[in-house]
Lab assay of single mutants.
Amino acid sequence: TFELKGKVGKVVKIAEDHYLVEVEGDKWIAYSDEKLSLGDRVMVVDVDGLKLKAKRIP
């Protein structure tokens, strides 16, 4: 999973306390310091076990 750092994905679902992000065809649980919206493009900035930390990108 460490190779996911720096990869770009898309928010495909918003849950109460996390997001579901699709990166290279796989879906991952993600969290972010900022509020994300459905369809936002994100970059993986860190990997915490099986969770990704994501940041919105333009």
Score class of each variant (00 low, 15 high):
residue 10 K to H: 11
residue 13 K to Q: 11
residue 5 K to A: 14
residue 30 A to E: 01
residue 9 G to L: 07
residue 41 R to Q: 14
residue 2 F to C: 15
residue 24 E to W: 05
residue 47 V to G: 05
residue 34 E to A: 06
residue 46 D to A: 06
residue 23 V to M: 06
residue 55 K to M: 10
residue 7 K to A: 07
residue 57 I to Q: 07
residue 3 E to V: 02
residue 50 L to G: 08
residue 42 V to Y: 01
residue 18 H to S: 10
residue 18 H to R: 07
residue 6 G to I: 01
residue 7 K to V: 02
residue 16 E to L: 12
residue 25 G to P: 02
residue 2 F to N: 15
residue 24 E to F: 06
residue 3 E to S: 02
residue 19 Y to G: 01
residue 50 L to Q: 10
residue 28 W to C: 03
residue 41 R to Y: 14
residue 2 F to I: 15
residue 37 S to D: 13
residue 48 D to M: 09
residue 43 M to D: 05
residue 50 L to A: 09
residue 2 F to S: 15
residue 15 A to S: 12
residue 47 V to I: 08
residue 7 K to G: 04
residue 49 G to R: 04
residue 35 K to V: 13
residue 56 R to G: 06
residue 6 G to K: 01
residue 15 A to Y: 14
residue 49 G to V: 04
residue 53 K to C: 06
residue 20 L to T: 11
residue 34 E to F: 04
residue 15 A to L: 14
residue 51 K to G: 04
residue 22 E to K: 08
residue 14 I to L: 14
residue 49 G to M: 04
residue 55 K to F: 04
residue 43 M to C: 11
residue 31 Y to H: 13
residue 14 I to K: 08
residue 37 S to Y: 14
residue 40 D to N: 06
residue 45 V to W: 03
residue 26 D to E: 11
residue 20 L to K: 05
residue 42 V to I: 15
residue 13 K to T: 10
residue 20 L to H: 14
residue 19 Y to E: 01
residue 24 E to K: 04
residue 45 V to R: 01
residue 58 P to N: 10
residue 11 V to I: 07
residue 14 I to A: 11
residue 4 L to G: 12
residue 43 M to K: 07
residue 25 G to S: 08
residue 52 L to G: 01
residue 55 K to R: 05
residue 28 W to F: 08
residue 55 K to N: 08
residue 45 V to N: 03
residue 20 L to Q: 09
residue 54 A to P: 01
residue 55 K to V: 11
residue 5 K to P: 14
residue 37 S to L: 14
residue 6 G to T: 02
residue 32 S to I: 07
residue 15 A to D: 12
residue 8 V to T: 14
residue 10 K to W: 13
residue 1 T to I: 15
residue 44 V to P: 01
residue 46 D to Q: 04
residue 54 A to Y: 01
residue 35 K to T: 13
residue 52 L to I: 15
residue 32 S to T: 04
residue 14 I to C: 12
residue 40 D to E: 07
residue 30 A to P: 00
residue 8 V to Y: 09
residue 43 M to Y: 06
residue 44 V to K: 00
residue 32 S to C: 14
residue 34 E to D: 15
residue 16 E to K: 13
residue 26 D to S: 14
residue 44 V to H: 01
residue 12 V to K: 05
residue 15 A to I: 14
residue 38 L to V: 13
residue 4 L to K: 06
residue 37 S to E: 13
residue 1 T to Y: 15
residue 26 D to F: 14
residue 27 K to C: 09
residue 6 G to H: 02
residue 41 R to S: 15
residue 42 V to W: 01
residue 19 Y to W: 06
residue 2 F to M: 15
residue 55 K to T: 08
residue 53 K to Y: 10
residue 31 Y to R: 06
residue 48 D to F: 11
residue 51 K to H: 08
residue 33 D to A: 08
residue 39 G to V: 03
residue 5 K to C: 15
residue 50 L to W: 14
residue 4 L to T: 06
residue 48 D to W: 08
residue 11 V to Y: 00
residue 40 D to W: 05
residue 26 D to R: 13
residue 5 K to V: 15
residue 48 D to H: 08
residue 51 K to W: 07
residue 50 L to I: 10
residue 20 L to S: 07
residue 36 L to D: 00
residue 19 Y to T: 05
residue 10 K to N: 12
residue 18 H to V: 11
residue 39 G to S: 09
residue 24 E to G: 06
residue 50 L to C: 14
residue 4 L to N: 04
residue 43 M to T: 08
residue 41 R to E: 14
residue 12 V to I: 10
residue 21 V to A: 03
residue 37 S to C: 13
residue 3 E to R: 02
residue 30 A to H: 01
residue 36 L to F: 05
residue 46 D to F: 03
residue 34 E to T: 06
residue 23 V to S: 03
residue 19 Y to V: 07
residue 57 I to R: 03
residue 29 I to L: 13
residue 9 G to Y: 02
residue 48 D to C: 13
residue 23 V to N: 02
residue 45 V to I: 13
residue 16 E to N: 12
residue 35 K to A: 13
residue 11 V to Q: 00
residue 17 D to Q: 10
residue 2 F to E: 15
residue 32 S to Q: 02
residue 44 V to R: 00
residue 39 G to F: 11
residue 57 I to W: 12
residue 13 K to C: 10
residue 21 V to E: 00
residue 50 L to E: 10
residue 39 G to R: 06
residue 27 K to H: 10
residue 58 P to A: 11
residue 21 V to F: 02
residue 3 E to D: 06
residue 30 A to T: 12
residue 2 F to Y: 07
residue 16 E to R: 12
residue 7 K to Y: 03
residue 55 K to S: 08
residue 23 V to Y: 02
residue 13 K to S: 11
residue 3 E to A: 03
residue 49 G to S: 04
residue 29 I to D: 11
residue 19 Y to I: 07
residue 45 V to K: 02
residue 22 E to S: 08
residue 9 G to N: 00
residue 41 R to D: 14
residue 29 I to Q: 14
residue 16 E to S: 12
residue 39 G to Q: 09
residue 41 R to K: 12
residue 47 V to A: 07
residue 13 K to H: 10
residue 30 A to F: 01
residue 38 L to T: 08
residue 2 F to P: 15
residue 22 E to V: 12
residue 5 K to H: 13
residue 7 K to I: 02
residue 23 V to R: 01
residue 22 E to Q: 07
residue 58 P to F: 09
residue 14 I to W: 07
residue 2 F to W: 13
residue 57 I to M: 09
residue 54 A to N: 01
residue 15 A to P: 03
residue 43 M to A: 06
residue 17 D to G: 11
residue 23 V to W: 02
residue 2 F to T: 15
residue 5 K to Q: 15
residue 40 D to P: 00
residue 12 V to R: 04
residue 31 Y to D: 10
residue 17 D to V: 09
residue 56 R to H: 06
residue 58 P to W: 10
residue 45 V to M: 07
residue 37 S to F: 14
residue 23 V to H: 02
residue 5 K to D: 15
residue 55 K to P: 01
residue 41 R to M: 14
residue 5 K to W: 15
residue 34 E to V: 05
residue 33 D to Y: 07
residue 44 V to M: 05
residue 1 T to S: 15
residue 17 D to F: 10
residue 52 L to V: 12
residue 1 T to M: 15
residue 10 K to P: 04
residue 38 L to Q: 08
residue 6 G to C: 05
residue 49 G to Y: 03
residue 56 R to S: 06
residue 28 W to S: 02
residue 45 V to H: 03
residue 13 K to G: 10
residue 2 F to R: 05
residue 30 A to G: 09
residue 52 L to Y: 02
residue 58 P to I: 08
residue 48 D to S: 08
residue 53 K to M: 07
residue 4 L to S: 04
residue 54 A to S: 03
residue 1 T to P: 15
residue 54 A to V: 15
residue 53 K to Q: 06
residue 3 E to T: 02
residue 9 G to S: 01
residue 47 V to F: 12
residue 14 I to T: 12
residue 11 V to P: 00
residue 57 I to V: 12
residue 5 K to M: 15
residue 12 V to L: 13
residue 22 E to L: 12
residue 56 R to P: 09
residue 25 G to Y: 08
residue 11 V to D: 00
residue 48 D to L: 08
